Computed example of a mutant assay.
Amino acid sequence: MSAIDFFKAPKGPFHRSTYPFINPTRPELSTKGKTAIVTGSGQGIGLAIAKSLAKSGVSALGLIGRTEETLLSTKESIKEISPDTKVFTYAVDVVDAKALTEALASFVATTGAKIDILAANAGYLPDLTSILDADADDWWSTFEINIKGNFNLLRAYQPHAARNGVVVHTSTSAIHIPYMPGYSAYRGSKAGATKVFEMFGGEMQELGNGKFGESVKGFPFDDVELSGDFVNWVASDEAKFLNGKFVAANWDAEGMVQIKESIEKDPFIFTMNLVGWLELIGARGP
């Protein structure tokens, strides 16, 4: 079974690059008048998300990452796309709860507005090795960044969340596929982080490189712009029906809109659960 077969879209084509329906310049996807925070925004998917938000006209953008140089590079890219967007950079490690809290508080104080969109994209991929051969510190730092870092981020964000604010977590479809050697820390931490965001969503209602190496040789990678534009679409009113769901950026957004009612009616679809258990015991309750 190919990767594309495994992640086949529920309806519509499987995308590897961006497409018109999620184009951030669509009026329906405009973020004008809104503010956004993007973690891990110095490069890769985080950079693409920041660019997409700029294309959609976001008013103020907070860029968080560990390296000032890459953040400033992203800032220059944003200013070329959207000169009117106010851009702020914060060289902060998400594991540092105090610094992260201060960064978000500073962003809100400076812009005078709550945070409308939080793109939680920061993550870490350790050296790929077996559990027995792994460097213990490097293995555990993956959980520190991917889980604790996002724990810190959500706690720093909540006091500054705008009414109807949107949180988008960049995870990986790799948490669902069969065994791949060397990925215990990455896939384990990403699965844990996904459940943390699921819990946060429920709580809020009550108030998402070179180290891959040979293991993915020949694997078809996506155009990074696809992820950026998909996140911008997910943050729009058009995608509100996906609240609390785990969806792939490759899935056709328009196709998901077409089966919107089915998705809204099923609390278990597109979530991480024990597949088949409830059907086996004849129950569909929590």
Results as ranks from 00 to 15, higher is better:
Tyr90His: 04
Asp135Ala: 01
Phe268Pro: 10
Ile37Gly: 02
Ala48Cys: 14
Ile37Glu: 00
Lys245Tyr: 04
Pro181Met: 07
Asp266Ser: 06
Met180Thr: 14
Leu226His: 03
Ile117Phe: 05
Asp127Ser: 10
Ser106Met: 06
Ser184Trp: 09
Arg16Lys: 15
Asp252Gly: 10
Trp139Lys: 15
Ile259Gly: 01
Ala99Asp: 02
Glu261Thr: 08
Val257Gly: 09
Leu153Cys: 02
Ala103Pro: 03
Leu280Val: 09
Asp137Glu: 15
Phe241His: 03
Tyr157Ser: 02
Val257Glu: 13
Gly46Met: 02
Ala156Asn: 07
Pro267Ser: 02
Trp233Asn: 01
Phe270Ala: 10
Thr101Trp: 15
Ala122Val: 12
Ile4Lys: 08
Ala3His: 10
Asn121Met: 07
Glu238His: 05
Lys211Gly: 03
Ala50Lys: 06
Ile263Val: 01
Glu214His: 12
Ala136Ser: 13
Glu214Gln: 10
Ala60Tyr: 09
Lys34Arg: 15
Gly210Glu: 09
Ala60Arg: 10
Pro178Tyr: 00
Val92Ile: 07
Ala239Trp: 00
Glu80His: 03
Trp277His: 07
Asp266Val: 09
Ser262Lys: 09
Ile269His: 14
Asp252Pro: 03
Val166Ile: 05
Gln158Asp: 13
Gly62Phe: 11
Gly62Lys: 09
Arg284Met: 15
Arg284Trp: 13
Lys265Asp: 05
Met180Asn: 08
Asn121Phe: 04
Leu226Met: 03
Val38Pro: 00
Asn121Lys: 04
